[in-house]
């Protein structure tokens, strides 16, 4: 990859935006929130985040908000990811490595099918305000 200048970055961003505005978007946002506390990072949350971005890019998806958050109190199940898709129950997935992250985008986000064997109930009681 050649070194990108700020001007090139600006052009890429504006072409990305005009491409998005051409597409039919229902305006509802999808949220993917990755637990990136020390526990999450130690368990591989960075790989999961990279895999989310790569899969989103590969499938040309938009209207997705990707956020990092702290520990959700589920350190035993890290990396954990909170996925909010309109029309689907808010779901927390555990043990999300790169392959599971890809599956979450391709199955949960794109086909509205939950990903089995990785669903954890909810954040720990002392984390919920």
């Amino acid at each position: 990859m050649a070194k990108m200048t700020l001007e090139e970055l600006r052009k890429l961003r504006s072409s990305q935006k005009s491409e998005m505005s051409r597409r039919d978007v229902d305006g509802k946002e999808i949220h993917i929130i990755v637990g990136m506390g020390t526990c999450g990072i130690a368990a591989g949350a960075k790989d999961a985040l990279d895999s989310f971005l790569e899969t989103i890019e590969k499938n040309n998806l938009n209207n997705i908000v990707v956020k990092q958050t702290g520990c959700m109190g589920l350190c035993y199940a890290e990396p954990t990811v909170d996925v909010k898709v309109p029309g689907m129950p808010d779901t927390i997935y555990g043990h999300v490595d790169a392959a599971v992250a890809k599956e979450i985008v391709e199955s949960h986000v794109m086909k509205k099918n939950l990903v089995d064997n990785h669903i954890v109930d909810k954040p720990a009681g002392d984390i919920i305000k």
Binding site: M1, K3, R13, Q16, I56, V65, V66, K67
Partner: peptide, 28 residues
């Protein structure tokens, strides 16, 4: 400066460009 160019970094499309931009600086 990068926020002015990309807007909200949490928009996945912006985050992908941010990733590419930073990687390109490092690779260079």
């Amino acid at each position: 400066e990068l926020k002015e160019v990309l807007g909200d970094f949490n928009d996945s499309a912006a985050m992908i460009l941010l990733r590419d931009y930073m990687r390109s600086q490092e690779e260079d």
